[in-house]
Simulated assay, not measured.
Amino acid sequence: MTRSRILSTLLGAAGALTALAVWQLAATVGPLAHAPLPSALQALGAAGQLLGTAELWQATADTLVMAFVGLVAAAIVGVGLGVAIGTSPLAMHATRGPLEFLKPIPPIVILPVVVLVLGPTSGMGTFLVFFGSFIAIAVQSSAGVFDTDPVTRATGASYGMGRAEILGRIVLPSALPYIGTSLRVAAPTSLVIAVVAGLLGGGPGLGQSLLMSQISGNQPRLFGYVLILGALGLLIQWLSQWGERRLLHWHPQYRKADHA
């Protein structure tokens, strides 16, 4: 690990500890001392107790399965659709408006309809993750394919490459940074959507556990789940960044970062 990475890790840890200290002071002797907000130590204690329960691990597994299956399906459909659109300027311009229109629509908008059709099931959560991820992946993938250097394509054709070979050896490697970025951004988003599916849609997972803790009025337990979700989000973010670096280790941006 380089000195810059060690320094950034230490600074991140210091920031987290500072935030917990501020939370503790605000909830004990500060302006929130008489509010229902538990202290940081109470929330950490509740999180520690939750780690020893089968309920937490089952809910975590349910949430991660929904997030992972939905993200993989979104990646397959999104990349495939993006490549198909990006290889045709006509299709690129024809679909830009509808895709840009759909991209900012949050999955929560269609949540009532999906719950009505699929019920409060893991399938409902998986579909919401898919809907919330595949459009952004398709847009980024099509942009990466469309922005491939035309001179490079022409050079490949001049060497006798067919369309399929140009697509596999020139276009897709050129579009990989766009695809990798879209997947890195979609990974933590998929976790958020999977939690929302349980919190508002009644599906299984950590979202439902959050809702039950809120209904029962167990504030330390509620914030214990929040802390665990935050740690899980950090882990997924780190894994997505690691996967992106591994996928694009040949890219100049990542070679420069590895030697920084």
Score class of each variant (00 low, 15 high):
residue 193 I to C: 10
residue 33 A to Y: 00
residue 140 Q to T: 08
residue 125 G to Q: 04
residue 202 G to C: 13
residue 177 P to L: 06
residue 92 M to Q: 13
residue 75 A to S: 15
residue 223 F to Y: 13
residue 176 L to Q: 08
residue 239 L to D: 08
residue 154 A to V: 06
residue 138 A to L: 14
residue 13 A to P: 01
residue 55 E to G: 13
residue 12 G to W: 04
residue 134 F to H: 00
residue 199 L to W: 05
residue 42 Q to V: 10
residue 203 G to Q: 04
residue 55 E to F: 08
residue 35 A to D: 15
residue 66 M to Y: 04
residue 256 K to H: 14
residue 143 A to H: 06
residue 181 T to G: 13
residue 33 A to Q: 11
residue 225 Y to Q: 08
residue 204 P to L: 10
residue 250 W to P: 07
residue 182 S to H: 05
residue 250 W to M: 10
residue 220 P to H: 08
residue 30 G to L: 02
residue 210 L to N: 01
residue 179 I to Q: 09
residue 228 I to C: 09
residue 189 T to R: 14
residue 127 F to N: 01
residue 154 A to E: 15
residue 17 L to K: 02
residue 127 F to V: 15
residue 223 F to I: 02
residue 40 A to E: 05
residue 122 S to E: 12
residue 77 V to K: 05
residue 174 S to N: 11
residue 135 I to Y: 06
residue 142 S to G: 00
residue 46 A to N: 06
residue 35 A to K: 03
residue 236 I to F: 05
residue 158 S to T: 09
residue 122 S to N: 12
residue 25 L to A: 12
residue 138 A to H: 05
residue 12 G to Y: 05
residue 33 A to H: 08
residue 78 G to K: 09
residue 11 L to M: 14
residue 6 I to W: 12
residue 32 L to Q: 03
residue 51 L to F: 08
residue 35 A to L: 06
residue 243 G to F: 02
residue 63 T to Q: 09
residue 256 K to W: 13
residue 224 G to Y: 07
residue 42 Q to M: 10
residue 248 L to E: 05
residue 210 L to I: 02
residue 82 G to L: 13
residue 196 V to I: 15
residue 111 L to R: 04
residue 88 S to L: 12
residue 26 A to V: 09
residue 235 L to H: 01
residue 246 R to M: 07
residue 186 A to I: 04
residue 155 T to V: 15
residue 88 S to G: 13
